[in-house]
Design a protein around this nucleic acid. Sequence first.
DNA 1: ACCTTGTTGACACCGGTTACCATAATAGCT
DNA 2: AGCTATTATGGTAACCGGTGTCAACAAGGT
Lengths: 361, 361
Amino acid sequence: MATTAKKRESATANLPATTGKPTINDIARLAGVSKKTVSRVINRSPLLNEKTRERVEAVIQETGYVPNPQARALALGRNFLIGLIYDNPNAQMILNVQQGILEALRDTDCELVVRPVDRGSATMLDDIRSFLERQRLFGVVILPPVSENDLIAKLCDEVGCRYVRMGSAMLDNAAHMVASNDRDAVVDAVRYLIAQDHKRIGLVTGPHGFRSARERREGFEFALAEAGIKLPRSLIAEGHYTFESGITAADSLLALSPRPTAIFACNDEMAAGVLFAARERGLGVPEDLSIIGFDDTPIAPRVWPPLTTVRWPIVAMGRSAALKLINGIFAHSEIEEEEPSTFFSTLIRRGSVAPPKKDKT
Amino acid sequence: MATTAKKRESATANLPATTGKPTINDIARLAGVSKKTVSRVINRSPLLNEKTRERVEAVIQETGYVPNPQARALALGRNFLIGLIYDNPNAQMILNVQQGILEALRDTDCELVVRPVDRGSATMLDDIRSFLERQRLFGVVILPPVSENDLIAKLCDEVGCRYVRMGSAMLDNAAHMVASNDRDAVVDAVRYLIAQDHKRIGLVTGPHGFRSARERREGFEFALAEAGIKLPRSLIAEGHYTFESGITAADSLLALSPRPTAIFACNDEMAAGVLFAARERGLGVPEDLSIIGFDDTPIAPRVWPPLTTVRWPIVAMGRSAALKLINGIFAHSEIEEEEPSTFFSTLIRRGSVAPPKKDKT
DNA sequence: ACCTTGTTGACACCGGTTACCATAATAGCT
DNA sequence: AGCTATTATGGTAACCGGTGTCAACAAGGT
């Protein structure tokens, strides 16, 4: 009875035993063919007699055989996993992309593994590299703003990992890119404000260094220039895509005299912040101040008044990104349609915009 | 030039070649030991001479060797992947859990794979089973409301997959459960309302069949009974944890005469809906109507007035769930602290509650 | 000399894949 | 017809990079 503290060889040894599922060998035996032939059936090899295929497939059906992904991963040096790499201030966006990717992956054997990274961290590139090399991912979808880093794309090439970047501009060739036309969408939104007779329009930008922030700002400036409106620098406040930064930016904008009659915020979070700040000052929206946001995240229709905003088709973009990755490998249809690379945002009119009150009439 | 359309044996053949990373064999050769010994070093086996370990570890350091997870997965019959199974109306909650799990996984070699399922679908159990069997997950975290399904827990046991369920009550033994005390939290919230002199308090419940909905409702009823307040059935409206259902429920509640002076909504989404409905009717919040929500999701502080709500420590619960899974396997500290199983929610007082206006004074 | 105990290695195995080869079937040629 | 060239088909064995089993060997205790 002495052998109490019997040392275990490894910490993982207490995991349950393997299940009794059929393997490729079982199928081969039952179908009276070799492993290799079964492998050919699984991989839809064209060099195979139709009758043999049918026979093997019958056995597969019967036994409910499913190839072991771990073994495949080892033999192929490639895992059937799609990675989602992000470092994003906007939770809702990540979830939407996730949803889009998962829709695309539904009928494949691929799974989605999520991987937040720390832009800012000096080791980010090394972290991503070791992640990719270790997991031997089939491919990755990279979200903005990390997607704007060309070094990551280069890294993917180096380690032989497919990738698709999402962003607000075509930063890469079409096979590696899913982009939205933020610039044009903002132009539309601001034209709408101008058409409502707004002349003093404030802008809350995104953080410096974000491509989307630049695109959206340029759209804003273009629309104003187009209408021949010239505004002082003070009507542009920098935000960080967060609710709090929206409040701060709005505080500085609303302290101006004369006050802007409308504010365009570069995302909904900040637009909600602007609305909040307006309420704190007792300003009526849209009577005293019109607001437009960007993204059409769930918050937009939930505040009062519901926010007019630009709808960013992020779920569709996520789906498209995933399809680009698996395109050609898991070809379900024989027709290989090229996935579109550019997506169009549209203005969703809700309740936060109205013509300004005429003081001078 | 004739061999143009040369048939490929398999569709996956055009994947890049394996990288030239060192393998366990290389390490064994360089260190002058056997593969098995290297394996022992990797797995921190105690049956190993200290000097040998050091020698091998030096070589590992030098070469930057990292064990191939695919090979390990095959040999062990177990993948180093944690699954997140959910079917949830609340996007924010999923993301928060995800964040918590990822925090816990940071220093392990585990990755997180997300797996939405369709509660409602007849094949849900089979889907989950095939997912677990195929991927040979290390463990899964199951979110409410699917976590309330005992069959899934049984399934996990059958296929030998560790699991931790999250929920609003202890549905399972502590090793498999991370629960919050919703009931008590709601009691506190309603007591607070009562202390502010509210006497007619409406309730927007969660969907029938959700354990959390039941717990929260029971808390509500308990607090009222405790204070000796008896209210008509009509002050209870069923919701579905969605914004829209909050509006609908509020519409029916606010049409009552006399109107409730306060409404407790079983989650923030619905509370936001109640607020929205109040605004539509021109009711002031909190002057004419007090509102309390549950969850403290990002929407709560972003609406006007910011919502008083119950903070549900969901990130911490996610972290704890993941730690329970990996506990004992990836023991970083020698002290194995037991992860707590119960988490406490707290009332966050913001701006949506005030004493009712005295009409009768 | 014998039994422990600690340390290490040889070898088969996990479940797929590919390279290479053998055979059969078909076509093309004299 | 007879023979070879070519293609179609499927088998064998090695391999991917780890892990478990079990035996071997050394050192120390009795």
